[in-house]
Amino acid sequence: MNSGDGSMAKNLLTGAVGVILFLVLWQVIGAYRLAGMGWPTLTSVLDVLATPSRFGTFQRAVTATVRSVLLGYVAGFVMGFGFALLGHLWPRLKVGTDQTTAVIHAIPAIALAPLLIVFFGLAATPIAICALNVFFLVYNATSSGLLSVNNTHGDLFTAYGANRYDRFRWLELPAALPSIAAGLKLAVPAALIGTILGEWFGAPQGVGLLMVAAMQNFQIPMLWSAVLLSVAISLSMMALTSLIEHYVSHRFG
């Protein structure tokens, strides 16, 4: 394996070439209709995104979606983390928390949507589905992280007479942080999926709604613009969580 500064720069370069090739391919397929009418050129999509009269629409949609994603993300994190703690600190409950989480996750989100609409209303349903998706990933990351304690560290705490709380506070929790941070990163696309799905069920605003409207009106470039916006939201959150993950795994790993 060769590594080092030279190959790093080379990797970045090839990667950039890969992305550019992809964009060119996108343009060519669109221009020559290689994939039919459903594939717009890159330039037509960018045109739509750069139309000043649409800025207001885009801004409102993105704001609504980002708000739902963030609220759902935080709520899902709190629930997943809390539920994992419950199972961890009271081991008798662990089988139950594992099973409950697995069952909740196995219920298709579209199936839950009608229930969630009844309970929370149309506007909050994207938040709720987002939270459920995040809940599952954070629960798993937290509970497996809390069990990832190195055996010798565990022995050390036993021999030094650590009580249950100290063991949790000074050993299990820090040891779980890298796993939790990785889970938070994985949860970003899941959070967006949940939010967009929730918006399809009739939220008053959001990128998902934009997609549905564009699809029904055969506005192909508009549809792809909405998809690009959702990818942009997801990518920027991924970048942020990757930074956190990098820091945490360096500091606590």
Partner: peptide, 15 residues
């Protein structure tokens, strides 16, 4: 991996 998969549903359906 950052692409929310459901967003691709309407796109692929059109294709």
């Amino acid at each position: 991996t950052a692409v929310p998969a459901v967003a691709l549903v309407p796109v692929i359906a059109r294709l």
